[in-house]
Deep mutational scan, measured.
Amino acid sequence: MKGKVVSYLAAKKYGFIQGDDGESYFLHFSELLDKKDEGKLVKGSMVHFDPTPTPKGLAAKAISLPLE
């Protein structure tokens, strides 16, 4: 699924993505496929991810940034 980063707290390594389906997904650095892309996780960045339901809500897994 595609989505847009709505927040990312680099110090805490987490944030949120708004998916194309309108839902909010929890984003964690550990799910970023290329850790070098962390600096690109800023508000408004477009990402691809696997939407995954968890006991705490919806989460983004296997997060990647589109090729530039």
Rank of each mutant, 00 (worst) to 15 (best):
F16N: 03
L65N: 03
K56G: 07
Y8D: 00
K4P: 02
D34E: 08
V5C: 03
K35T: 08
K40W: 07
M46T: 14
P55V: 09
K12T: 11
F29M: 06
F16S: 04
E68K: 10
K12Q: 09
D34F: 07
S24M: 15
G57I: 03
I17S: 00
K2E: 07
E23P: 03
F26M: 05
A59N: 06
D21N: 08
A60N: 02
G22E: 04
H28V: 06
E23C: 13
K35Q: 09
K4S: 08
A60I: 00
T54N: 07
G44F: 04
K35S: 09
Y14P: 00
K61I: 09
T52R: 10
S24D: 06
P53F: 13
G57Y: 04
T52N: 10
S7L: 14
E23F: 14
L41T: 02
S30W: 08
F49Q: 01
V6A: 09
I63G: 01
F29R: 09
E31P: 00
K4R: 14
G44D: 06
S64M: 11
V47F: 02
G19C: 03
H28F: 07
L33P: 02
Y25K: 00
T54P: 02
Q18D: 09
V42I: 12
L9F: 15
I17Y: 00
D21V: 02
F29I: 10
G3F: 02
D21I: 02
V47K: 00
V6H: 07
D37I: 08
M1A: 07
S24N: 11
L32D: 00
T54V: 05
S24Q: 13
K36A: 13
T52M: 14
K61G: 06
G22V: 02
P55A: 10
F49K: 01
A62H: 14
S24K: 13
K4H: 13
K36M: 11
S64H: 15
G39F: 13
A11C: 12
L65T: 07
H28R: 07
L65M: 11
K13W: 04
I63L: 05
P66N: 13
P51F: 08
D37P: 02
T54Q: 06
G57L: 03
T54W: 06
T52V: 14
L32A: 01
K12V: 08
G39Y: 14
I63Y: 01
P55K: 11
S30C: 12
S45E: 08
L33Q: 09
P53S: 14
K56F: 12
A62W: 08
V42K: 13
A10Q: 11
F29D: 03
L27Q: 00
F26G: 01
G57R: 04
G57V: 02
Q18K: 13
Q18S: 09
K43T: 10
G15D: 00
S64Q: 09
L41M: 05
A11L: 10
M1G: 07
L32H: 02
A59K: 14
